[in-house]
């Protein structure tokens, strides 16, 4: 998903640019153009539709869910029926209702943890890419430390250490283990941009390093940052499900991960209740897939060569 923006530099392209001198685009138009670029990609369109559906389900869970998430007292381990479309759990809860309520947690954790680790990746990656000398070496050491330790074991250790913290704890664990990769990618792009003439020119204009990094360099890597966000959100959703499946989260909260945890605990497969494992698993996979699909379209913003359906 990492793309290097390729400046349109051939004479032919310049000629076209010069031929069509248009009025300055307003910010709204830029947003619309970016949105239409993403939308024009078939894969991204599918991703947006799936993600949109999940978000709608999460928002309207109170209306959509036939029962409460923790509402038990139905027949235990019942098969699918008109009253319970996906059957009930070993504790007598409605699976469909749990699935609908659970989407809130997955999407919330995904977006928040993705956003936080992107923010950290941007702050670390950009300053790391811009500074030289001792400071860069120190950051390099720390980032490498996080990159070299295997992710899941580290998560388990931290989660066990912070045990019982619930969703907040899970977000912290995911962010701590998830920012380093993005920081590395953004640092490389910063290093490539910092040698551009317009950055040198900003130094000549008397700009302070902070302003050069965040006003000159950062806006030129927006698509990379957006791409990083979707990547980080995907990883966060998978990590959250993984941690909860292992029972490291708060098992009393209803999420797709804890559903899997309880399904495994009650040997759902042995009792023939495949929906208990299959439904939350499929939802996690679909949500992660939708974000990855959107990333295909995001790549097209900065690299026109990746735009689909426009060649030949």
């Amino acid at each position: 998903m990492s793309t290097q923006s390729i400046p349109p530099s051939t004479r032919a392209v310049r000629a076209i640019e010069e031929a069509s001198i248009a009025p300055a685009p307003s910010p709204l138009k830029v947003v619309l153009r970016v949105a239409s670029t993403v939308w024009s990609n078939g894969k991204a369109r599918i991703g947006i539709v799936i993600l949109g559906l999940f978000i709608l389900v999460a928002i309207f869970a109170p209306l959509l869910a036939p029962y409460g998430a923790r509402q038990n007292g139905f027949d235990r381990s019942a098969d699918a029926s008109a009253a319970h479309w996906l059957g009930t759990t070993a504790a007598g809860e409605d699976v469909l209702s749990q699935l609908i309520w659970g989407s809130q947690i997955s999407i919330f954790v995904g977006l928040v943890a993705g956003l936080l680790s992107t923010v950290i990746a941007v702050l670390v990656g950009l300053s790391w890419g811009y500074v030289r000398g001792f400071g860069a070496d120190v950051i390099n050491f720390i980032v490498n430390l996080f990159l070299v330790i295997p992710g899941l074991p580290l998560m388990i250790v931290i989660a066990a250490y912070l045990s019982g913290g619930g969703i907040g704890m899970i977000i912290v664990v995911v962010v701590i283990t998830g920012w380093a990769w993005g920081a590395r990618v953004l640092r490389s792009q910063t290093q490539s941009l910092r040698s551009r003439d317009f950055v040198t020119a900003a130094v000549f204009s008397g700009e302070r390093p902070f302003r050069i990094v965040f006003r000159e360099i950062l806006p030129n890597m927006t698509s990379l940052i957006v791409g990083n966000f979707f990547g980080a959100a995907t990883a966060a959703i998978l990590a959250e499900a993984g941690l909860e499946y292992l029972g490291l989260g708060d098992t009393t909260v209803v999420s797709w991960g804890t559903m899997l945890f309880w399904a495994q605990n009650s040997n759902a497969l042995l009792t023939g209740q495949w929906a208990l494992l299959f439904a939350p698993g499929l939802c996690i996979a679909l949500l992660a897939t939708s974000l990855t699909l959107i990333n295909f379209g995001v790549d097209g913003i900065s690299n026109p060569r990746l735009r689909e359906g426009k060649q030949r």
Partner: peptide, 24 residues
């Protein structure tokens, strides 16, 4: 650097690379 660049300025070779494409 500001002390120097107040008085010594530079015109770059490639005008296509020397302006940040996102700034007016």
């Amino acid at each position: 650097f500001r002390r120097l660049h107040r008085d010594v300025q530079m015109v770059f070779q490639d005008p296509y690379a020397a302006l940040n494409p996102l700034h007016t």
